[in-house]
């Protein structure tokens, strides 16, 4: 059993890492990866919501009538998203402002509904917990990697600390919308090279 829990956890980090292997949740991937700080904030929010919603969905999976399961999943997810929204507003206001409407939009992030439907509604609580945590951490890693590339070249900083000398001219294409698309496309290409 422990072995399977571990397997469910680890698969989110490479085998099914979103958004590369599991091509879901692209919008926030593009929108909040201007700075590493924002990406990590978003990642933590997703980890929390995904793990909690997976556990809840899994524990009530036998009581939900099949016809309204999607509505019930959405209510569960929206509840945790609102909790994150309130807590972020109270304690990390500047990250809340930087992420803007992308926090409430976690509700429609397809990763959450996708995991609830494809995994949590069919598996036990512990496995669902491991799955949510794994996929969430994998997503955070992807966001952070993309944000690191964009921030280093686009602003010349990493975690708001300058990495190049003062003569560095930022390549601001990277932090604008077109740069987001191109960067993610090329990263996806590199990930595809590893696939056999």
């Amino acid at each position: 059993m422990l072995k399977r829990v571990f397997r469910e956890f680890i698969k989110g980090l490479w085998e099914e890492i979103p958004p590369f292997r599991l091509v879901l949740g692209l919008c926030p991937t593009l929108a909040v990866t201007k700075r590493v700080e924002d990406a990590i904030g978003m990642g933590l929010a997703v980890i929390f919501v995904l793990t909690c919603s997976n556990v809840i969905v899994s524990s009530v999976r036998n009581f939900i009538p099949k016809q309204v399961r999607i509505a019930c999943f959405i209510v569960v997810i929206a509840t945790f998203v609102t909790i994150v929204e309130l807590v972020m507003q109270a304690f990390t206001y500047h990250i809340y402002q930087a992420l803007g409407i992308f926090i409430p939009l976690i509700v429609v992030n397809c990763i959450l509904l996708g995991r609830a439907e494809a995994f949590a509604s069919k598996n036990g609580i512990i496995y669902s917990f491991a799955d949510g945590l794994g996929i969430g951490i994998g997503y955070t890693l992807s966001l952070t990697a993309l944000a690191a590339i964009r921030e280093i070249f686009g602003y010349g900083t990493f975690f708001n600390i300058p990495v190049f000398g003062p003569s560095f001219k930022p390549f601001s294409f990277m932090v604008k919308a077109p740069g987001a698309f191109v960067c993610l496309g090329l990263m996806l290409c590199i990930m595809n090279m590893f696939k056999k």
Binding site: V68, C72, V76, I83, L86, V87
Partner: peptide, 23 residues
């Protein structure tokens, strides 16, 4: 079906108002 969705929404509403009043 109606009952299921209502119960879910009610529990969620209650929980949220709790979080809201404490933050």
């Amino acid at each position: 079906l109606f009952l299921a969705v209502t119960i879910f929404s009610a529990v969620s509403g209650g929980l949220l108002s709790l979080v809201r009043s404490s933050t």
